[in-house]
Nucleic acid binder design. Sequence first.
DNA 1: TTAAAGTCAATAGA
DNA 2: TCTATTGACTTTAA
Length: 474
Amino acid sequence: APESPMSSSESVKSLTELVQQPCPAIDTSKDGKSQESSEPPVSESQSTTPLPLSGHSALSIQELVAMSPELDTYGITKRVKEVLTDNNLGQRLFGETILGLTQGSVSDLLARPKPWHKLSLKGREPFVRMQLWLNDPNNVEKLMDMKRMEKKAYMKRRHSSVSDSQSCESSSAGIDYSQGASPQPQHQLKKPRVVLAPEEKEALKRAYQQKPYPSPKTIEELATQLNLKTSTVINWFHNYRSRIRRELFIEEIQAGSQSQAGSSDSPSARSGRAAHSSEGDSCDGVDAEGPPDGKPSGPEADELGSAAAKSQGGPGEPALEAGEEALRGARPSERAEPEGLEDTDDEGRLRAPRQSSPPAPQRPGDALETLPNSATEGDASTSAASTSVLTGESSYKSKESSEKISSVPSTSSTPAAGSQKANSLQSLFGFSEAASSRNTRDSSLRKKKAANLNNIIHRLEKAASREEAVEWEF
DNA sequence: TTAAAGTCAATAGA
DNA sequence: TCTATTGACTTTAA
């Protein structure tokens, strides 16, 4: 019940001011918006602007995005979250009405915003929309109206269709399609969602730690051994990589904020961190376990260790191939073989590792793989990694941490550029915020760094194998 | 073709 | 009911 003093009202106020000045676009948006929004979600294909913003005839959202100065994505999401929660507005409503995105996407975006400089034009769009929305003094009211309207519509529908639905149920499922009627064509084709078991995830994570970019062969092996479709494994790696990367962004942001903590207060803060190398650096690589383990002790240490090992060639342990190692422990259903994974097991499946990968490493990712067994060891890294993997483990988590984060702007910043145009626009979109909470997660940062190091090493190795020049950003 | 980025949408939890 | 998570899909680059 108490409205937080600061959040909504304040932000609105400040935003308002911002708005007034510069840009025309914004004003427009408000007016047009309410009306338009009435027509809901809109499929919004892509090109133009579906939502609210469309109001301004003058500039399309894309244009705004293109002209937009660097925005503090972290600060924006933070404010949006505040406004939404303070006013009891849901992500779904906000997403569909303002951003043209689904609830899940909004949740993700708000929880893990990527830094501005890492976003593509498309990716920046939601942030620009959010900023414009924040700048709109009537933003909350409009959304509230929408909410009311939806409710009304819902009730209406409900009443009218109650009877129908019942009948449908009775008629029951399944039948529909066979007939070919096309009532709801889509249902039929749906395939059930794959849900990976915890053990499977663990195995994949371990494999990932050893090789963030597994070769097709390794993927095959993993798929076979885990009894998953190859595409599932591929998708998992893609998703995991990008998600890990985002986790890192956040970590960095938080870290950065902490460091600069002291000065809070400035309204228009710009975040500092981005500026430095971070940009590319950090993130990329990342493999690490970042998110993954939650376990207090074990994992972390391991990871660091492994990283270190790699670099030094440390003693590692056994070093199995990624696939193998990863599987250990995993594969719940099946046996957990103690150690022998190496060779086949049941159906011979397992032998993964051994893949003596004979042929030359074709693609980048492969380089490492080929090496494994063979003594090449260049791969010390590999081996080392594997070790850690085994132990390690588990849980994913860092989330909480992220959640807590509360403050600080971060993401963007880099003022440098400073073109005038940019500046003016900036005022348009002005941002502010400050505040911070700090959680020290040094250790976690350290882990990430170690992971990043791993990744760098990995890439270097790949590059070496290809002998191609590469520019590294560290 | 592969990887990354961006999303969707099912679903798990609170 | 709302939010968070996550496998899969689509688009875009290289």
